[in-house]
Design a protein around this nucleic acid. Sequence first.
DNA 1: CTGCAATGATGCACGACGTGCAAAGTGCTG
DNA 2: CAGCACTTTGCACGTCGTGCATCATTGCAG
Lengths: 250, 250
Amino acid sequence: MTEAALPAVTPTTGTPETPEEPGTREEPETPGPSEPSRHERRKRATRAAVRDAALRLAVRQGVERTTIEQIAAEADIAVRTFFNHFSGKEEAVVAAAAVGAEAFVAEFRSRPPQESVLRAIREAVLVAMDRHDAVGRDHIRALRLMRGTPSLMPQQMAVLTVQEDALAAAIAERIGPDGGPGPGRLGRAVHARLCAAASLAALRIVLDRWLAGTADSDDPPPLDVLRAEADAALAQLAAGLDHPGRPDGG
Amino acid sequence: MTEAALPAVTPTTGTPETPEEPGTREEPETPGPSEPSRHERRKRATRAAVRDAALRLAVRQGVERTTIEQIAAEADIAVRTFFNHFSGKEEAVVAAAAVGAEAFVAEFRSRPPQESVLRAIREAVLVAMDRHDAVGRDHIRALRLMRGTPSLMPQQMAVLTVQEDALAAAIAERIGPDGGPGPGRLGRAVHARLCAAASLAALRIVLDRWLAGTADSDDPPPLDVLRAEADAALAQLAAGLDHPGRPDGG
DNA sequence: CTGCAATGATGCACGACGTGCAAAGTGCTG
DNA sequence: CAGCACTTTGCACGTCGTGCATCATTGCAG
């Protein structure tokens, strides 16, 4: 399981956004039109540092015993700055869960256009899972933290909603403009969002079950079980919830 | 639209749980085994009073400008007591959204056993919507508050999760024990939860769209549009997301 | 290079929030 | 009635959240 394994509910204990040391990196002469300014990059780096510090502390000592002051100290910022980035510690802890989701949506966008929506989602999920096979202890601990801390649940669900937005937008583009063969009685936007929401819910459910089945072991759980269940749940959505076991035909 | 119209995202501005005046109600000689104790009834009444006060104040002046002290005063309790019931003001405001959901699940449970899962859900939704046809101004205001206040979203999603639990349990009972004809490649529990989560997501999405379409009007929105879209979305889940427009056959 | 505007970080103040604890009030049982 | 369980309450106090002004960094124009 990797950072990009599943949207939303998959935190990372490392950061792909390495905080930049001022002055230690060679600067391009002129930033390209789509390249973030230094301001923007520093801001993102600070945010990532805070997010990762929050998760580290929460894994180490539990969310309830983690204070914002500790997070700020760990990230080497002022407490006041913490609130420039997050509304509270739960949001910071959970923010790590969002890290891999952009890659998942990008993978979905790059699927061949002839694949059906749910087929493309299924493939994107499998690709994301296959990206790395290493399952680290720290990673499992973070997942378990998320699952075992009720106070994190609202923010986890909120993160899921943001990702639902992104996936729905990608699906809407895939379906194409209204008037096409697409969504039948539902409008395109509703259909896209329905696919996104249902798929993400399926992934959430499957991940939760998988983690539940591994609660008492320090060993990395069998990833192929998770992979198979995710695929089966998505296939079920494709084929129809009133038709259990039906081949999805997608 | 009524209290029981849709699960989770439908608040009420009145309370079906009338706070009891101590000493003004005749007591049965002995509480039955399933009848709540007075302790329990008082606790529930307090909770309902707080919840309703929170929603009233939030509708009146906005969530951000509503303090816990105001809510406590409005509900005539101590601030300390507020925290015996809710973790924060957002949870209190959103708690009203959960009021009608038990009735919806009960309606689902009472559907004829030969109906498919999604058919039973569809029928329960339609029954719940038809229970009352009056759409009050206060009610629409509450719905719009929920939609227009980002800080409420995590707690709204959390409420949805609780109701997903309840609906999934009901669905699992309906499906029957594992080993039956039921869920195919997915286990019974996963299938039940998948149905619950996807259905509730559909209702959430449809309600959101409906409210978006009524944002600029004080008039009650056309309820039959909401009814039709909810039914169409659930039918789509029944028939398969990769088969837009397919009759659901359920 | 200098000046200026924009932006993020920071210190500070202070009201609001969240929690533990003990006391008071209420309800139930024997 | 006494004892016990449960809910509410007052209080203390650390933590949190926000507004505001200042500082530091960055990017741009002249």
